[in-house]
Design a protein around this nucleic acid. Structure first.
Length: 156
DNA sequence: GCCAACGTTGGC
DNA sequence: GCCAACGTTGGC
């Protein structure tokens, strides 16, 4: 069964994994999400083909730098079982995995990044409840409405 | 590097 | 179930 295409925003620290890295590799498993709400969006909400805004956090100019797409169904994050990984979770069992991810595929870089301060400047039209700019919210994976998607890309 | 804000853990 | 302590996120 398929439902209508959905839209998301996914954060990454560019020192760790950037839009240029994604362009280079094409498709990347989105490892390391260890927040239940973010996991639920990936596990329960995402479908192949969904649109993704690729956001750079913890950098000089935080903001949206590219467009990507969901490139797989959700599956268990293998790093949770890898003792050498910094994402290892000793409480997760293979028969009952705790953390899920999707593969993310490169679509394009923005002609011009859309910085966080510009996004904030449009808070009124984006909606005060938009999780990216809601005070105190630090979700690394969050839903974006079709309207917000269009608005944000119109700022490019 | 600082620190506000939030989530998770674990003792009780 | 409460809540203090701790860890993490992420802008600045």
């Amino acid at each position: 069964m398929t439902t209508r295409k959905r839209y998301w925003l996914m954060k990454s620290e560019p020192d760790d994994f950037s839009i240029d890295d994604l362009e280079r590799v094409g498709v990347e498993p989105w490892t390391g999400v260890r927040n239940y709400q973010a996991r639920n969006f990936m596990r329960d909400g995402m479908q192949p083909g969904d649109g993704v805004l690729f956001y750079h956090s913890s950098t000089a100019v935080p903001g949206i730098y590219g467009v990507a797409e969901v490139a797989s169904a959700a599956y268990p994050d293998p790093t949770q079982f890898d003792r050498r990984s910094k994402y290892f979770d000793e409480k997760s069992k293979r028969e009952e995995p705790r953390w899920f991810l999707v593969d993310v595929g490169f679509v394009r870089k923005l002609r011009r990044p859309v910085p966080l301060d510009e996004i904030r400047a449009h808070a009124g039209r984006l909606g005060e409840d938009f999780a990216l700019i809601r005070r105190g919210t630090r979700l690394s994976v969050l839903p974006v409405t079709a309207t917000q998607w269009k608005l944000l890309l119109a700022l490019e």
